[in-house]
Nucleic acid binder design. Sequence first.
DNA 1: CTGAAAGCGCTTACAG
DNA 2: CTGAAAGCGCTTACAG
Lengths: 326, 326
Amino acid sequence: MATIEDVAKKVGVSVTTVSRALNNHPYVSEKTQKLIFEAMETMNYTPNRIAQQLRGKQTKLIGVIISRVTNPFFSYLVDAIEQVAYRNGYQVVVLQTLEDKNREINFLQMLQAKQIDGLIMTNAENSYKTLKRYIDLSKVVICNRYTANDEMPIIKIDEHLATHEAVTYLLTKGYTNIAYLTGGSIQDTDFRLQGFISAHQSFGVSYNEELFFPNILTIEDGKNWTKTICSFPKKPDAVFANGDLVAAGVIGQSYDENIKIPDELAVLGFDDQPIASLVYPKLTTIRQPIQEMGEYAAEILFSKLLGTRAPKQIDLKTSLIIREST
Amino acid sequence: MATIEDVAKKVGVSVTTVSRALNNHPYVSEKTQKLIFEAMETMNYTPNRIAQQLRGKQTKLIGVIISRVTNPFFSYLVDAIEQVAYRNGYQVVVLQTLEDKNREINFLQMLQAKQIDGLIMTNAENSYKTLKRYIDLSKVVICNRYTANDEMPIIKIDEHLATHEAVTYLLTKGYTNIAYLTGGSIQDTDFRLQGFISAHQSFGVSYNEELFFPNILTIEDGKNWTKTICSFPKKPDAVFANGDLVAAGVIGQSYDENIKIPDELAVLGFDDQPIASLVYPKLTTIRQPIQEMGEYAAEILFSKLLGTRAPKQIDLKTSLIIREST
DNA sequence: CTGAAAGCGCTTACAG
DNA sequence: CTGAAAGCGCTTACAG
């Protein structure tokens, strides 16, 4: 590949001048400028970004740590982030943890090694204590429900409130034996669980701890859970699923098991992904503004990286979308 | 951030020696090695990848050009590619064209500018003639149904055969007025369309050109199409949708419009995405080995980049998954 | 308006 | 086993 020096030699000027022409520096005569551009064209020259980066110390790349891109929640998030990034002249590197702690550490090191300029984390496999030494607060934004620490900028919805309202709606409809399905397993930072419990308390109904099911996060997990409850002596009459994918799995399997929805089992999802209105019966769910979350996270990251003004940080609004499954 | 020079000074050795220690070069005394690693640890030193890249001329990054990551077909493809890449020490940059020609050119330039080492294209917005000057055959792999040119390595399924078989199945079941829905608009390189037509010919049924509908590629498009046909004097009795998303949209809207599936309208999809078995009635579809496609594409790219042996290039197998919608 | 030279942070051939 | 020096391909302060 041609280098800046090749171009300079061909035109008979210095490397400095070629560089200036390239960067639209004012002090280059029109004539020289023209000659240089012609030479670059015929030589099919493209400046080497890596060399530019070593000087400028920017890669124009940001990373997004997600658990897995096949989950629509994350693909929509990546989509929104990519679009803001592109507008700012950046590209997005997709970093999938696949629930692997080492992968996560690896990704954080990419930031330290300056392979990427900034990072959006939507997820945390390691404890904050472990992560802390790798995280440069001026280059990292947290997006989604990881609640590591108050120091960090975080874009999120009000998990507690959203769940409290939705569960109150279920209780009002007369469901009293509601299962709680979550992808995680840690209970004390689960604000959705807190909202779930507080709704029960406000309503004067006791919350049954045996109906807490951790580590359920895929369609398949939702299906399997549904099979499991068939053998329960006293089945739940409703289920709150953390994520529409799980909820869709529950609905799909219920059809095969001949469980009537919502009569025998009401199903409440979270996210409002496109799948929610395609399953039968259609899924009642809590709508998260995924696109806005991604955009905000990206805007805030770029305001840090580029030193521009940051948008105000707020908890984004959710809404309960009532369809047929409750 | 600490540099290699800082570490060298601290330990009292040359930069060369530190670099050797870093790269596990054999000729470093154990004592020195140990001292150096300790210093790196306490200084929290991470080698600057950009500098390494400028020397080594590698970024350890590959790009994947897709139309949009929110389409599960592409998110599964990216997922598979990412995993192979990670095993080879590479990361994946997601490059969304969003059907924009300029974006595509931009991405190709990233390769020329050596911002990425290689590229997988699943999609082409510009003509091959335009693309040609940007494409370095030793660093690009085509994956999916873009059929630019014989020079390029291409991973694909046998689109013609897959469609021929599936449509023959529909014809055998007695459907004779089958609509064809496609996301694209170019007919002469559409091998699926050719298979669609050839199945009609083999069966001695004429193919009705009025039932060709281009530019239909999202759930929403599928819904809208379904609304449209309600006003047709003679409705199609079956529909072949290019993609399960479109098919799911058709099924969802049919429910709202009270069109009975499959009695009044049979629906055949393409892909076998998870959504296929969650809609009601469950979707009959052509299963594509998306994961394999992604893995093969990545393996072949890395065999080029790393000079290792390439896996044999074959057309991957599809299969018809019969469920309830036909 | 133009150029010589230093420097970004590494790696590696060469010499010891 | 170790180090001085060149070089990767750019940008930019300095001098003209």
